[in-house]
Amino acid sequence: DVAYWFLEPEDAAPGRARRLARRALTRWGMEELSDSVELLVSEVVTNAVRYATRPVTLRLLRTDVLRCEVGDDVPQLPRLRQARATDEGGRGLYLVNRLARRWGATRLNAGKVVWFEIDRGSAG
C-alpha cells in the first residue's frame, strides 16, 4: 500500500515520476486514476526539481484515499497564485488545487513535503 522512490533533480524526473505512478496504480488496480495522478505528480515533481539540489522523494500511499507526497530539500513552501495568460508557469498548484480532494505542504528540518489526495474511484 506504499510505493516510494528517489528521483534525481533533473529534467527527466517528471516523466519518470509519471511512469512510476502509473505502474503503482496499475499494480493496485487503480488505473482509472492514472490520468489525474500523472498530471498532478508531474506538476508537483516539476516544482520540486526546479530548485532541489538533492534527490527528490516520491511516495504514493493507498488508504481510503490515494495520497501522493513529494519531498525536496528546499524549505520555502509553495503558494497558490493565479497565473496571468502571458505567464510561462504558475499553473501547477492551481491544477493541484482544482483536481485534488485536498493538498498542502509541510516544512521539514531539511526541506519540505508537498502532498495531495485524490478520492479512490474518482478520476478527478
Rank of each mutant, 00 (worst) to 15 (best):
A3G: 14
F6S: 13
L7Y: 03
D11K: 12
A12R: 14
P14D: 04
A21C: 10
A24H: 03
T26H: 14
T26N: 12
T26D: 14
R27A: 13
L33K: 09
S34T: 15
S36L: 04
V37I: 14
L39P: 01
L40M: 14
L40R: 07
V41G: 07
V44E: 05
N47R: 10
V49Q: 07
T53E: 15
V56G: 05
T57A: 10
T57W: 08
T63P: 00
L66H: 05
R67T: 14
C68E: 02
E69Q: 12
D72T: 06
V74C: 00
P75I: 02
L77N: 03
L77P: 01
L77A: 03
R79M: 08
R79F: 12
A83K: 04
R84H: 15
R84A: 13
T86P: 01
T86R: 12
E88S: 13
G89F: 11
G90S: 09
G92L: 07
N97R: 15
N97M: 00
R98G: 00
R98L: 13
R101D: 01
G104T: 10
G111A: 07
V113F: 01
I118T: 11
D119I: 13
R120G: 01
S122W: 09
A123H: 14
A123I: 01
G124P: 00
G124I: 01
G124N: 05
